[in-house]
């Protein structure tokens, strides 16, 4: 009876370790390959998003909601609707931002290396393209019920200062990112839930402009 008890306890204690075991290198390569294939077929994507930022110092959350549009690999519109209005548009080499004060800021991405990095990583994180970029992140894949998990550890200095870990949760059926989890070096975490995704529907180019 005692042996059974201790054996059960050992199994239970080890359970979290089993759940967190990464897949083999060969399997990871296969999974990343499938994601890359899905991304290659992705011409447009639009979805709603919910963002929850947990602030460690305050032990409190900041919740926001909005809409995202993606087209052609070089255009992204990320728009917060509540509780504040903020819009970020990346259109090829231009970044446009408009906040609640209604003032438009336009930045040429080519003028700032940091901006180039940030916009590239944003685009690649939403689609999952970042999984094959060895210079940006070291990637480890995990398999859970109904989803894959990609844990990305930043490799470059600027990103390393800000983030300790970025986790992409990927739907097994569609191979699309459904949740992004970002752990900051300050102890804060941000969760972004991508909801109601609509793939390859026409998106007017006007969506990626701001006047």
């Amino acid at each position: 009876m005692k042996r059974l008890f201790f054996f059960s306890l050992l199994c239970l204690l080890n359970l979290p370790l089993w759940a967190q075991k990464p897949v083999s290198i060969a399997e990871q390569k296969q999974m990343v390959g499938q994601i890359e294939k899905a991304v290659a077929n992705l011409k447009t994507l639009q979805c709603d998003f919910r963002q929850v930022k947990h602030l460690s110092l305050l032990d409190g959350d900041m919740k926001s909601q909005g809409h995202m549009y993606y087209k052609g690999g070089d255009r992204l519109r990320w728009e917060y609707a509540t509780p504040y209005k903020y819009c970020f548009v990346l259109n090829k080499d231009k970044v446009m931002m408009r906040g609640a004060n209604d003032k438009l800021n336009v930045v040429d991405v080519r003028s700032s290396r940091l901006f180039q990095e940030i916009t590239r990583i944003m685009m690649n994180s939403i689609t999952g393209k970042c999984l094959s970029s060895k210079t940006d992140f070291s990637v480890t894949m995990y398999r859970h019920d109904g989803e894959w998990e990609a844990r990305l550890v930043p490799q470059k200095k600027e990103m390393k200062r800000m983030f300790s870990l970025i986790t992409l949760h990927i739907d097994v059926k569609t191979k699309m990112v459904i949740r992004v989890e970002m752990k900051e070096t300050t102890g804060d975490t941000t969760m972004i839930y991508l909801e109601n995704p609509r793939q390859n529907l026409p998106i007017n180019d006007n969506v990626f402009g701001m006047k």
Partner: peptide, 15 residues
């Protein structure tokens, strides 16, 4: 009083 200043994306400016 404890506070955090962040940008709209949630990136921390300071605590």
């Amino acid at each position: 009083l404890r506070g955090s200043v962040i940008n709209e994306f949630g990136i921390k400016a300071f605590d």
